[in-house]
Nucleic acid binder design. Structure first.
Lengths: 342, 342
DNA sequence: TAAGTTTGTTCAATCGTTTGAACAATTTGA
DNA sequence: TCAAATTGTTCAAACGATTGAACAAACTTA
């Protein structure tokens, strides 16, 4: 079809100079004269030259590719993080490769392997729910590829991490419900082996203790935090001889499930039972009543992770391997599902 | 840190053979003996060898990278399409680079350029709302890089396209409202210069004509289709001396805006005014009342686009440049917002 | 004006892998 | 038994860009 490729060699030929002169001109090397630089630039434009990134990446040992591994792209939290990452690294000439693990351990492993094979310069990841063995991440570390965990992190590997203060978020969420006059607050939690959910449970418990409310095992549940989990657990909660007057769910989806069930049962939200979720997924503001939740500052989280990556790239002298542990402060978002009239 | 790199040269040295023998062994070349292949495989595993993708990509002139350009990743439709694409191409050894244009013409151009520079093997794109000049896409074509448009396409470039039958989707949506007994159906449409929205308007009009309903200009609006547009237009519709008894919105977001306003005004949905949206965004099933909508088969669309890409790669003999125009059939999803009791 | 410095360019090696051609060793066929 | 075919491997040249060293020419400086 078209003259598919213009290489620096061709530009060189056209100008009767050497490829290396062209390369240096394009890279603005100080020893190249302005005249040559201009001539090269003009010819490059004229010949519609597009640098071959692979060649330079190979030579420089740097692909300018950043891998991001997330459980799901269609969860708004994660796509926002990705947006934050992109905003920061695109400006520095990096491209982002996103791969989804769908919370499958196997897929996560193959994704990591694919990214390493593609010679990404770094990996930003959120660990899948299924994952307990971290060998594939060890691998990344061994290869000397910067690795940064966000949200679902593991401290044991000694890599950079960035999370929100889940404990505090949960504490505030529970405290807010207490402020609204709730006395029996149920918790729809995630699996305790995931640190982040564990921290939320602790925050919830501490809030109860602080305000001298009894802790009742029958009100505390663990689950996969999907919509159906919210429904099922809420059903069980309603069946109790003494049902709760509030539900704090560790995800917006499970909170939504709870809300749907309550609405179907004709239970008034928030007066009979108040609800608060976690993550500030967009839909929480669309539903009726709008759902209170906790904002995780997803985009900021991505930006921060990206900046840490860039710092790692800048200081490849690996002498100062100080682990970077960033904790962002969550923000309570109070909406109709928990705002009781005074 | 670690012995960061194992190359085929090192494997070769360890086995006292040449790098080319190693390369051929790894690639299962027929002329290499099974003994050698096994020895190489064993040594590769032992030395934790990871092929350098950049080098092979450079040599082979093929990066195994596929670029996907979408307006927004946090719109579920687009992330589903991406998922469909990934499912298909990952299996064939490709990685996907996603870049978002945020409906900015400038960003779209730089994205395309970045992808070309990265030497992607192909590009799957949905044209941004702002875009009217297609020079950057011409560029892709000129370079001989397979280009496939989906959803927001442009036929004039002569590249492969994949869309749903927007006309039919709109026709059915409007017809469904008519079936429910609605007589004055308003339309919250997108900008007419985007073919897809134009087709939906045509489908809507044709449904009215088919069922002998009058077409009233005051009921037909163009907008950016966001939540606020839905609210504003609905407000205007309610102010009419003869307000509509149904609203067909060209996006789920604008349908949601309409719904919110109607609920605030205490208007019964669907009995006083029925609503139907377009796209089947997940939140449509979460809101109350749940929103009727049109399913665009997003994941299938992505899969189809990916398959077309793979076909193009397989037949790089570019003799048979038959443009591939796929049209998927949309599916009506009827929920509470338009289902009137009989 | 001879020695030293600066300027602008070319040379040549390199990144790690691939691949057709070449070649030696072995096997087959008539 | 000698030529032909097969098998398994090595050779060497790519792919396109980068980069330190080398070098010639021009310019300073004493």
């Amino acid at each position: 079809m078209a003259n598919k490729k213009t290489t620096i060699t061709e530009i060189a030929r056209a100008l009767a100079i050497t490829p290396s002169a062209v390369s240096k001109a394009l890279n603005n090397h100080p020893r190249i004269s302005d005249t040559t630089k201009e001539a090269v630039a003009a010819m490059a434009k004229k010949m519609n030259y597009q640098p071959n990134h692979l060649a330079s990446a190979l030579r420089k040992g740097k692909s300018n590719l950043l891998g991001v591994v997330i459980p799901m792209a269609n969860i708004s939290f994660f796509s926002s993080v990705v947006k934050g990452v992109e905003d920061v690294v695109n400006a520095e000439g990096y491209n982002v490769i996103i791969s989804q693990s769908h919370d499958s351990f196997e897929k996560e492993c193959t994704n990591i392997e694919a990214l390493l094979k593609t010679q990404v310069d770094g990996i930003i990841a959120s660990i899948g729910n299924e994952t307990t063995d971290l060998q594939h991440y060890e691998n990344v570390k061994e290869k000397g590829v910067p690795l940064i965990f966000f949200d679902r992190v593991d401290e044991s590997l000694g890599v950079d991490t960035i999370i929100i203060d889940d404990y505090l978020g949960a504490f505030r969420a529970a405290e807010h419900l207490i402020d609204q006059g709730c006395k029996r607050i149920a918790h729809i939690g995630g699996h305790k082996h995931v640190p982040l959910y564990h921290n939320r449970i602790k925050g919830y418990l501490e809030a109860l203790r602080t305000h001298h409310l009894p802790i009742e095992e029958e009100l505390i549940w663990e689950s996969g935090l999907e919509i159906k989990d919210g429904r099922e657990i809420t059903e069980k909660l309603l069946a109790l001889s003494n049902p709760p007057d509030a539900i704090f769910a560790s995800s917006d989806y499970s909170a939504l499930g709870a809300q749907q069930l309550l609405l179907e049962q004709g239970i008034n939200i928030p007066d009979e039972i108040a609800i608060i979720g976690f993550s500030n997924e967009p839909f929480t503001s669309y539903v009726t009543p709008s759902l209170s939740t906790v904002n995780q500052h997803s985009e900021q989280m991505g930006q921060r992770a990206a900046k840490i990556f860039l710092e790692r790239m800048a200081s490849k002298n690996k002498t100062d391997f100080m682990q970077n542990q960033t904790v962002l402060t969550p923000e309570l978002i109070i909406r109709d599902s928990s705002r009781r009239g005074t």
